[in-house]
């Protein structure tokens, strides 16, 4: 990788920044443009930048789990988000809503979180395979 001091130093900052923005986009997707897919892409962008600056091994260490495991968690979350609807005679993936103190909470956020993690894991896994060592 190109050894740029500026990039190396700012990479962790940019990584956390992009993750913060990606979470914001994930939550914003509730009723405005955004959502799990976009958020996941942004989060993955941060990780990729980190991998370019500090190398593949550092990026894997930052993630702690192998990228594919993120897909696994995401799939589980998305799968689980569809189940509560089944309890009330409704078809699979029928989402339920609750309004504690006016805050709209639905099982959709769990689904979106799943999408976020799957996208993050997939993009990172693909890119790290392309980067080499």
């Amino acid at each position: 990788m190109n050894d740029s001091l500026i990039l190396r130093t700012s990479a962790p900052l940019l990584l956390w920044l992009s993750i913060a923005v990606s979470v914001f986009v994930l939550l914003r997707g509730h009723n405005a443009p955004g959502g799990g897919f976009l958020g996941g892409l942004m989060g993955a962008g941060g990780v990729l930048l980190y991998a370019i600056a500090r190398g593949r091994v550092a990026a894997i260490r930052f993630l702690r789990l192998p990228p594919v495991a993120y897909c696994g968690i995401g799939l589980l979350a998305a799968l689980a988000s569809g189940l509560p609807g089944l309890l009330g005679e409704a078809p699979y993936l029928t989402h339920l809503w609750a309004f504690p103190a006016g805050l709209p909470l639905g099982t959709t956020i769990l689904f979106d979180l799943g999408v976020y993690l799957v996208v993050l894991g997939t993009i990172t896994a693909m890119f790290l395979a392309l980067v080499g060592d």
Partner: peptide
């Protein structure tokens, strides 16, 4: 409920399998 669960169960089984095996990569 049972009929709807039955309908998606053949999809949920491999999905669950894929999720868990990916998690335990």
């Amino acid at each position: 409920m049972t009929a709807q669960l039955l309908l998606v169960a053949p999809l949920l089984a491999p999905l669950l399998g894929a999720a868990l095996t990916a998690l335990l990569w």
